[in-house]
Simulated scan of single mutants.
Amino acid sequence: MASQYLNWKLRDVKPDPPPPDPTPPQKWRNWWHYHKGMVIAGMVVGLAVLDIAHSALGLGQVRPDYQVAYVGENALPDATAAAIEEAFAALGSDANPYDRGCSAFAVYQNFVFVAELTCQKDFGGDVEQILSDVLDGVHYSADLT
């Protein structure tokens, strides 16, 4: 007589039928269950990269109508700086749709002066002449000894 164990071990085993193919919504729920952490982490990293790029490119920042840079051994006197600001302020506005402009770069001994002027599309004046007139009115002298 065979033991119950041998009867159980030698029985005729038939495998279970394969499960039915999942429907598209079931596939989506299964995929989301296993990948939602990676999707959320990717979104956080993507937003961080976009924020850094937005800051680095200066998007959304108000650009000035004009920029003047002065590099020298001595500080530019306040009166001269104010005269330059007034001369350019009369030419620009905050609602300026930039279309064209010009730049000036001057070197005198150990001093460098850079000016940039941008104008509206419908501005009919000579931008180069205006910048030249502004620069002609700027006088700076310093004791270099």
Score class of each variant (00 low, 15 high):
1 M>G: 01
2 A>C: 07
3 S>I: 03
4 Q>K: 10
5 Y>P: 00
5 Y>I: 12
6 L>G: 00
6 L>T: 03
8 W>G: 01
11 R>E: 13
12 D>K: 14
13 V>C: 02
14 K>H: 14
20 P>R: 14
22 P>M: 08
23 T>E: 10
26 Q>Y: 04
27 K>N: 05
28 W>D: 02
29 R>E: 10
32 W>V: 02
32 W>D: 00
35 H>E: 09
38 M>I: 08
39 V>F: 06
40 I>L: 09
40 I>E: 02
40 I>D: 01
41 A>R: 07
43 M>H: 05
46 G>Y: 07
49 V>F: 08
50 L>G: 01
51 D>Y: 06
51 D>C: 04
52 I>S: 01
53 A>G: 08
57 L>W: 08
61 Q>C: 03
64 P>W: 08
68 V>D: 05
70 Y>A: 00
72 G>W: 09
74 N>R: 11
75 A>F: 11
78 D>Q: 11
78 D>M: 08
83 A>K: 14
84 I>N: 00
85 E>K: 14
85 E>S: 06
86 E>P: 00
86 E>N: 09
89 A>C: 06
90 A>V: 11
91 L>Q: 15
91 L>E: 13
93 S>K: 14
93 S>M: 12
94 D>Y: 07
96 N>Y: 12
98 Y>D: 11
99 D>V: 14
105 F>S: 01
106 A>S: 04
108 Y>E: 12
109 Q>E: 13
111 F>Y: 09
113 F>D: 00
116 E>N: 09
116 E>M: 06
118 T>R: 11
122 D>R: 14
124 G>S: 15
124 G>M: 15
126 D>E: 13
126 D>Q: 12
128 E>Q: 14
129 Q>F: 14
130 I>S: 07
131 L>P: 02
131 L>A: 04
134 V>P: 00
137 G>D: 11
138 V>G: 00
139 H>L: 05
140 Y>I: 02
140 Y>V: 02
141 S>M: 10
141 S>F: 05
144 L>G: 00
